[in-house]
Design a protein around this nucleic acid. Structure first.
Lengths: 327, 327
DNA sequence: TAAATTTACATAAGTACTTATATAAATACT
DNA sequence: AGTATTTATATAAGTACTTATGTAAATTTA
């Protein structure tokens, strides 16, 4: 059946723009769902504006987006309910609400950022061609989307780009010049979830002394000359090894760097014929624990005095009872 | 304040298309209101499809427009409530509703058709330029609409085109070769509002005999070699004159042809030093009566036996008490 | 030929906006 | 300084769609 809105040409343009908009939004929502990201694409413009402005008000967003004020107020309410943004009243003008992103919002932003980049580039690829009229442009765009859905295109594009980045990640053995990066990434990670004391950085920078020289190993994930992830195998008093100091730069999330480091450590430990590996973590870090379990770590009872205050879960990987899901 | 949706480029495209769509719809609604046309632009695609298909079903419209079935069902209900379309159940498939345009719908269509033409051409003028990406096209379109609103542009465009057409309308005195057109237009008009008998056409074609030869006058509005309107001044038994046989081709509505004929007849009567003009009409024809009043006709009591069965109002224009609104 | 599926349309409820209106604080006016 | 206006935000209700679901007729399948 031929498309009547296309046949109506310029007269149906209003309806057609709306239809295309709804179509795109639906596919973008499906992309978020595919990546288990709980984010409403309709809230994107408001969310992005708050991120970019750092601090802003309802009216400023309204001015920027050219929607009505109730639309912005309602959108902000939804973002607030989701815990992604928060506000405080302006000190000098008590009518104004100053909105800013929350920690949860920042985390979600970091997760979505590479996906947004892919979406933007994918849609650019789809819409950057020359045409002699707006309807012609829309027609061609619609045709392309009919051939292969926007969702499929974005997923394919994103997978391709992240795979290229993933392939450029290499795991390197420790070198003295990596000490600063090792400290930086671990402090960054600690700061995100726990209280960190100023001397922690200094202590981590002396890792050669505290880890390597005590029969330990440090591995670093390198992406285009940048150190973007770390992991360490640290000898415990009983002679066994603990997997720890796992940290990945938030800017390079989504590239499975943590999993590459994990795989490398397991392979290394196996090559040494160690019979097991221990790790300490915190139940709050659900995602991390999910990954540990996926790689075959099993929870075991915690000792009376754990080596880290912040840890409340102990896990073990047994090489004789190895479970490799292949993931 | 700069437009943030524009700054977001391809990522904000979904939201932006929607915003543009809403903007256009609002202006188009305002254009209809300006012309006192009671029509919802959201219903345009459905209405147009029924007109073009003549007879069609919910599902066929849904297929053509690519909206959901409830959207079409709801739209059809609105058109039905407005009396613009009607349906009957399919004889062979009792689930199907066959929709078609009503007389009221046809009349509205005739009224809107030239406006649609103007809208289409105006939007074409606005959107037919070359651009290297969809966002670029939308950006330029938005810029143009910001400079001068779509409503203003459509109104200006429509006025310009109708004025050009109006200026090409000339009022001519009767010639024998106009007799057929005179009959055609009057029969067409009669058919639209009243029951017409087959011999009426023949009687009207003999207008030279029935009107001209009895001291009457016939004027014809000519547009590009087509006769598109008629009016006659017919001598009554008492020697006075009646203004009648006013008919304008439905295809050329909106060009104020009727008003040009009216003006011509009034000027002609005045030049003859007649003291008044009479006309008979029907209260049902509200628009016509509004025009008569605007030109200065006043209702007077109806005689016992009016010359036309269908007339239920008699009006008089008095030249000594002339009221000319200049319209 | 009866049962299962599909088709055509109806209806209810949700959503992402809109318009209209309200309220309190800030600012402008006299 | 007191009053009127403007600004910043909130809230209610409407709209043009959506999704989800229901019903009856037609068609396919067993």
């Amino acid at each position: 059946m031929k498309d009547e809105l296309q046949r109506l040409q310029e007269l149906g343009l209003g309806s057609r723009l709306n239809r295309l908009s709804v179509h795109m939004m639906k596919d973008i929502r499906a992309v978020y769902e595919h990546f288990d990201i709980d984010f409403d694409p309709f809230l994107f413009p408001i969310f992005k504006m708050i991120i970019d402005a750092e601090k802003t008000t309802t009216t400023a967003i309204q001015d920027g987006l050219q929607y009505t004020q109730p639309a912005i107020t309602q959108g902000l309410k939804k973002l607030e309910d989701k815990g992604l943004v928060a506000f405080e009243m302006d000190k000098s003008d008590k009518r104004k609400k100053i909105f800013a992103i929350t920690a949860k919002g920042k985390a979600l932003h970091l997760k979505m950022k590479p996906l947004w980049k892919s979406m933007d580039n994918c849609v650019k690829e789809l819409t950057h061609f020359s045409a002699s009229s707006l309807t012609q442009h829309i027609f061609d765009f619609e045709q392309r989307l009919a051939q292969k859905s926007l969702k499929e295109r974005i997923l394919a594009y994103h997978q391709k780009t992240t795979q290229i980045a993933m392939q450029n990640v290499t795991i390197e053995n420790f070198k003295p010049e990596y000490a600063k990066d090792f400290a930086r990434l671990n402090v960054e990670w600690l700061e995100k979830y726990f209280e960190v004391e100023p001397h922690d950085a200094e202590l981590l920078e002396r890792c050669e002394e505290t880890i390597i020289n005590k029969n330990g190993y440090i591995f670093c994930a390198k992406l285009e000359n940048d150190i973007v992830g770390t992991a360490a195998l640290i000898q415990m008093p009983n002679g066994g090894y603990e997997l720890g100091k796992m940290a990945v730069s938030p800017k390079n999330q989504g590239l499975k760097i943590g999993q590459q480091l994990m795989r490398h450590c397991l392979d290394f430990a196996e090559s040494k014929n160690w019979k097991n590996l221990i790790l300490y973590s915190n139940r709050m870090l659900e995602n991390a624990i999910y990954i540990y379990k996926k790689y075959g770590f099993k929870e075991i009872p915690m000792e009376e005095n754990p080596p880290y205050e912040r840890s409340n879960i102990k896990m073990e990987y047994r090489f004789n009872a190895k479970i490799d899901t292949g993931l």
